[in-house]
Nucleic acid binder design. Structure first.
Lengths: 180, 180
DNA sequence: TTGTCTATATATCGAAATGATATATATCAA
DNA sequence: TTGATATATATCATTTCGATATATAGACAA
């Protein structure tokens, strides 16, 4: 599974431009479980075009630049279903915030507080964002994923808030303090 | 922050070979918050060598191939601290399992069950793995991260187990069933 | 003996992704 | 006029990915 598959998935929800698909990854439909940027979305859409899995229509807009709207072909839908029927590979995660908390003995306490507060905010905003999605009438899988995101984000926010003292307390062997 | 920084972080915990560092990403120290493979670890180590941030000693072993053990230099430690003191970029996540659950209306019910069960097992194993790490005497940040991982993994496993009916129930508008 | 599997090790490569940036069409404020 | 914002498409040097290769061993089955 690669960005092509996710673009097909996005288009299975309705025709969209590259920019709109990026929005879905950014702070929308897919944001809490799949990450992709312009540098992979546009090449993926071009590959899908070349392979006949999507079609593309240029649309003129008022007060806005020209827009390319992509649609799935029947072959594209078949490919999406085939990809979804494979064995999933393992989850991939990279969190610089957690790395910094792991090595928090190597950084100053002001930075530590900053990272922690930003991370709490990130999860609280994520909870709000997911809660604002109305699950009514959506496919069961989509409702399930919404609930999973909520459960995880709430648990993370709760833990971060309740255990901040552990992260922020000073260790006797810390070799840099507020002087850093 | 890139794989070089994480390799420096790994070496701040003690000298190690490329293979041992990979193990830390795979099912060890970093596995639930930072992902990296051989294809990025070895080039990163070579770049660190070129830049004088690590040194490397070849060690002969009995019944085992030659091993290259890497150590941090003082410059390497300074670089690690500098990297850890920057603003963290946003978390990156990719979960094919969740993608498949999101589009579960497009796949057969046997595959749905399989994915769900594998995902529950994955989280349950993660909980066991983290619980087996003894937090005693570790830096507070490391203890904090262990607790965060536990909180999140438990919440995910709990949700998955308690809501499996939602994912596995049939929708009237499903256009493929067990025939796929 | 060969093949397969496992574990410990280092390494590589074509394809994909990254992060930053560029460009374009608009609007608005300083 | 410049800078910021929003909507849009696109690109590029660098890094990463996933699979694979190679090496040193040992164990086991055909």
């Amino acid at each position: 599974m690669d960005t092509k598959t996710l673009c097909l998935g996005a288009l299975s929800l309705g025709d969209a431009s590259g920019y709109e698909i990026k929005k879905m990854f950014e702070e929308g439909t897919f944001s809490h479980f799949y990450d992709a940027g312009y540098g992979s979305i546009y090449p993926a859409l071009n590959r899908l075009l070349t392979e006949g899995l999507v079609t593309c229509t240029e649309v003129e807009q008022e007060n806005r630049p020209l827009k390319k709207v992509y649609s799935m072909t029947g072959t594209g839908m078949a490919k999406l279903k085939a990809d979804l029927s494979e064995e999933p590979s393992r989850d991939k995660t990279r969190s610089e915030s957690i790395v910094m908390m792991f090595f928090s003995h190597l950084i100053g306490s002001a930075h530590r507080e900053e990272i922690l507060q930003s991370y709490i905010d990130y999860y609280r905003k994520g909870v709000d964002c997911i809660e604002n999605i109305d699950p009514t009438g959506q496919p069961f899988g989509r409702q399930f994923v919404r609930g999973l995101g909520l459960a995880v984000y709430k648990a993370a926010a709760k833990y971060l808030e309740e255990n901040k003292d552990l992260l922020l307390s000073d260790e006797e062997e810390r070799d840099i303090g507020d002087a850093a």
